[in-house]
């Protein structure tokens, strides 16, 4: 089943074409990677999917629902979670509150119930707290629940960001350079970890990454972008030997 489908997506920043003729067919349960040099339009694609930018042309469908035209919170509420290239936690709030905030769309109570702390408020708040604590526990962060996000070490901030994205209860998880700033040993752990959350939370994952080790190691399909255009798409082995990809990454001379 196709979970996320993009057809002929095009995005312009002024006169600059950031993404051109982008097509994507992401099957449910798949783990797909997007690679490409800096400025290739990878993060722009995440921003188009999640509604931060509105595509200039084309259509993006998630389980048949058109995403172009929806606001980010509407798209997120359809159960698409994401992390950011530069960690964007709520820095001055506790780790627990970071995760709790992401339950906004699921919390089923009205402003009046919130104002008077009556009705569904009590049940829903307890459920959110329980689920947030469960997520923190899974990510081995529960002893830091009361710590401000900005005080956590870098590695734990990355973990907390994934925990927060999972609080959305996503079917599709978008990871933007999850291995940025990690050493080879940490990358090995991250690969194991991504595989684990994928089965545990029954996720479809789309990730952007520069670390070839991670991309080639865990992705089932890889898409290569350069200057907003799709260079190649296929399984890791085919991508590794694609002359166009080698050219984009290594330069023209080394190919010949």
């Amino acid at each position: 089943m196709t979970l996320l489908e993009a057809t002929q997506v095009r995005h312009l920043f002024g006169g600059l074409c950031a993404v051109a003729d982008f097509n994507l067919d992401l099957q449910a349960g798949q783990l797909m990677g997007i690679i490409g040099p800096n400025g290739a339009g990878k993060t722009t694609i995440f921003n188009l999917i999640t509604g931060v930018y509105q595509a200039t042309e084309g259509s993006i469908r998630f389980k048949g629902t058109e995403l172009v035209g929806l606001t980010p919170h509407q798209i997120t509420a359809l159960r698409i979670g994401r992390t950011f290239q530069n960690i964007r936690l709520f820095r001055d709030l506790s780790a627990l509150d970071n995760v709790r905030i992401a339950h906004y769309a699921q919390a089923d109570y009205s402003p009046l119930e919130a104002l008077l702390h009556i009705g569904r408020y009590r049940r829903e708040e307890q459920r959110i707290i329980d689920n947030s604590r469960r997520l923190l526990a899974i990510f081995k962060l529960e002893h830091l629940a009361g710590e401000m996000a900005k005080n956590l070490p870098y590695g734990l901030q990355r973990r907390l960001e994934i925990a927060r994205a999972l609080a959305i209860d996503p079917e599709l998880l978008l990871l933007d350079e999850p291995a940025a700033g990690m050493n080879p040993n940490e990358i090995d752990q991250l690969m194991e970890f991504i595989q684990w959350i994928r089965t545990e939370f029954k996720l479809t994952i789309l990730l952007i990454e520069h670390q070839m080790k991670l991309v080639m190691g865990i992705c089932e399909r890889i898409k290569v972008l350069d200057f907003g255009e799709t260079l190649a798409e296929g399984p890791p082995l085919a991508i590794q030997n694609d002359p166009k990809v080698l050219e984009a990454y290594l330069g023209q001379e080394s190919v010949g």
């Binding site: 709520f90 820095r91 509150d97 905030i101």
Partner: peptide
């Protein structure tokens, strides 16, 4: 909590379903 999230990072809060 949405109000606090807006103070911290409005775009990120929107992307966390607020």
């Amino acid at each position: 909590r949405g109000v606090l999230a807006i103070r911290e990072d409005e775009i990120a809060s929107d992307l966390m379903s607020v």
